[in-house]
Amino acid sequence: MSHPHANATHHDAAHDHQHDRDHQHDRDQAEILELDAEVLAEHIASIAAWLPVTAAPREIVDLGCGTGAGTFALLNHFPGARVTAVDSSVGHLQRLEEKARAVGAAERVRTVQADLDADWPDLGTPDLVWASASMHHMADPDRALRRINEILAPGGLLAVVELAGFPRFLPENAPEDRPGLEERCHAASERRHAEHLPHRGADWGPKLTAAGFTVVGERGVTVDIEGSRDEAVGRYALGSLRRIRGGIAETLAAEDLSALDRLLDTEGPGSILRRDDLAVRTERTVWAARSGT
């Protein structure tokens, strides 16, 4: 004898549990994005200032905007521009809108919730499209690049900003009981991401050319921030390593997992928040490409 009500209740509970997990993931990711924006604000601003625009853009699209690190750097650097901020996460867009209101920029920002692997929304005819750490998440980035080329104003510019990898925070000889732990964690994470994100770490120059763009600039940005006295760097390191742990716990050696958990235990004596030797070391590359239409 079936029990449809019990089954429905079980289904609803499973759905609610997944919904809660998705929301928690969204919140965790938002926190990392906002720490990234805070710690790397000068570097993001320097990339915006470097962009080889022929005239100050009036309409900008920020693809995969997250909580707005690029959006606000572009608003600051191009005070006459409006930004359409596009992301799949409603939560990220809500945070971005709150920040825009807080700084008096609400009228200059439009948010659009969209899955860019599906149907593209109407994004107008922007003079500048900014895609920071978002292109490698696309299921078909070549299709996305062609679509961007179609919507850009004649002579418009696309900026693709990509990370060489997740930031490093610890010295090579740390932690003392498991030296090199961070590199082993990153190696495990990169093996996992190679399967799910095959375009991460790609050379976007040839892809841009194949999509009909003319590459007009490429720049590497090296980040090396000493953070021993910066509380935000500690929180950034904590959040980043927590996120990595979630994907690699089952593949780490037991000793490494224990050492990682001691770093992530904010109440313990080995907490990463108690260290005075943290830094932020990472690299980014930006490609600037002119529309071929």
Rank of each mutant, 00 (worst) to 15 (best):
T125Y: 06
R147C: 02
N149D: 12
A105V: 09
A139L: 13
R147V: 01
L96T: 03
A118N: 10
D127H: 11
R95I: 13
G156I: 03
D127T: 06
D140N: 14
E150P: 05
I148H: 00
E162R: 00
A159R: 00
L93T: 02
L158M: 10
A85M: 06
I148C: 07
R143D: 13
L152A: 00
A114G: 07
A153R: 10
E150W: 05
R146W: 09
E98Q: 15
L116P: 07
S88L: 14
S89Y: 01
A159P: 03
T111H: 06
Q94N: 13
E107D: 15
W130A: 04
V160M: 01
V86A: 03
D122W: 10
L145P: 05
P141H: 01
S89C: 07
D87W: 02
E162M: 02
R110I: 11
Q94Y: 12
L123E: 04
Q113F: 05
Q94F: 12
Q113W: 09
Q113K: 12
V129S: 00
D119Q: 15
N149V: 00
M138C: 08
N149A: 15
Q113Y: 09
A139Y: 08
K99S: 13
V86C: 02
V161A: 04
A133V: 10
R108D: 09
D115G: 05
A153H: 09
A118E: 11
E97L: 14
S134N: 06
T125E: 15
A105Y: 10
L152V: 08
R147G: 01
A102C: 10
H92W: 05
R101P: 05
W120Y: 08
E162H: 01
W130L: 06
H136N: 04
R146V: 10
A153T: 10
A159V: 15
L123W: 04
I148N: 02
L93K: 04
A153Y: 04
D117M: 08
H92Q: 15
D119M: 09
A106E: 15
P121F: 06
H137F: 06
G124C: 07
V112M: 12
L93N: 05
D119G: 13
G155L: 09
A105M: 14
L116W: 03
V86L: 00
L93V: 07
Q113N: 11
A118M: 11
D127M: 05
Q94K: 14
R110N: 10
T125D: 12
T111E: 07
S132F: 01
L123H: 06
V160I: 12
L116V: 02
A159I: 11
A139S: 13
K99Y: 11
R101D: 14
T111A: 06
D140G: 07
L93S: 01
L157F: 02
R147S: 11
P154W: 02
